[in-house]
Amino acid sequence: MQLWSEEFGDKNDEPILLIMGSMSQGILWPDEFVGRLAAAGRRVIRYDHRDTGRSASVDFEKDPYTWRDIKNDALAVLDEYGIESAHLVGHSAGGLLAQWIAVENPERVRTLTVIGSSPLGGGEGETLMRALMGQPQPEGSLPPPTQEFVDYFRQVIAAEPPKDRDEQIDRMIAEARVLHGTAKPFDEDAERRLQERILERAVDPASVVNHRLAHAADPKAEPADSLHLVKARTLVVEGTHEPVKPGHGALIAAAIPGAELLMIEGMGHMLPPPVHEQLATAILAHTAS
C-alpha cells in the first residue's frame, strides 16, 4: 500500500504522528499548526490515509479492506520512517485510530492526544444514524450530534449530487461552516482555497467512500470497554461548540486512567486559525520529555 506522507522539523526531535479523520487528507492538519509544532522542537509527520489525497486508491470490490487495516497504516508510516514509538495526535476518527493503537500497541505510543473524537468502541456510528433518522437514543448511548448538524446533513442526504466541481466545493464550504464552531472568523476564502487544494491533489476524489465500506466490512473491529488499558499519558481535547460529538471528550477522559480534558472555547469540529496557538501550546506541553 502506497501512502503519501511528509515530515517537518529535525529528525532528532520528539516525533509526533498526526492522524486525520475518516475520508480526510493529511493536509487538513493546517500548515500553520504543523509549523508551530515543528518550530518548537518536534519532528512532525502527517499522511494521507489510503483512498484519500495522494495515497493509493483501491478497487474495493477487488481488494477489500477493513478499518483495522486503516489503523495499521498508521503503524506502517512509523515503520517507514524508522520510528519505534511516537506521540500520537488524532482528530475525529483519527482519534479513534490513535486510541486503538494505544490499547493494542502501547509500546508504539509515547503520549496520546485525542481531538474532537469519540470513545473507542463506543458506537459513535449507531448514535449518528439514529439521530439522522430521528430515532430515540437508547439509555447509555453516546450524546447525539447537535440539531443544527442533524438538520444540515438531512438536507445533504436528500439533495441531488453536485452538478460540477464548483457546486461540490460550495457544499464543502457549507459543511465546514456548520462544523466550524464560534471561533471567529470563519474565513470562506481560505476554506475555498483548501477545498480546491483537496480536490486537485486527490488521486481519485470519489474513492474516499471506501472508508465507509471498510467500516461496514467489520463494524465491531474496534475493541469496546478497553480504554482502561491505555498506558500512555493522555490529553483529550474538545471544543465548547463541538457539533458532531458533543460531550464525547469527557467520556474518553473518564475512561483512560489519569487522562486530562482540555475544553477550547469556541472550537467546533474544525481546526481553524483562532485555536492553533492554544492547541499547539497544549500539545507541546503534553509531549515534552
Rank of each mutant, 00 (worst) to 15 (best):
E160H: 08
R165Y: 15
R130E: 07
I157Y: 11
E277N: 13
P161F: 03
P143G: 05
G123V: 13
N12E: 11
R68A: 13
E107M: 11
L229F: 00
P144W: 01
S141T: 05
L112M: 05
P223G: 02
T240I: 01
G125Q: 08
D79K: 12
S226K: 06
V103N: 03
A74L: 04
K220R: 14
D204K: 11
T234W: 06
A176K: 02
R171Q: 12
A176E: 00
T66R: 11
A280K: 06
N12K: 13
R54T: 06
L88S: 11
S85G: 10
F149R: 01
K71Q: 13
L18S: 03
G53D: 04
P64L: 02
M23E: 04
L279V: 12
D51G: 02
A250V: 06
A217L: 12
P15D: 15
A282R: 01
S55R: 07
E160D: 15
K184W: 10
A217T: 06
V209D: 05
R130P: 04
I27S: 07
S226E: 00
E260R: 14
L17M: 06
A102P: 04
V209A: 12
S55H: 07
L261N: 01
T182D: 09
I101W: 02
L251A: 03
D164M: 05
L235V: 12
E277Q: 15
I256T: 00
G258C: 10
P15A: 15
F153V: 08
E7K: 12
I70V: 15
V44M: 04
K220C: 13
Y152W: 10
R130A: 12
D69Q: 14
K62R: 14
L284Q: 02
Q147C: 13
E160W: 08
P185M: 12
R192G: 13
N12M: 07
A176W: 00
E167F: 09
H269C: 05
A259Q: 03
K220F: 15
E107T: 11
S117L: 10
D10Q: 14
D51P: 08
E124I: 13
L88V: 14
G26N: 05
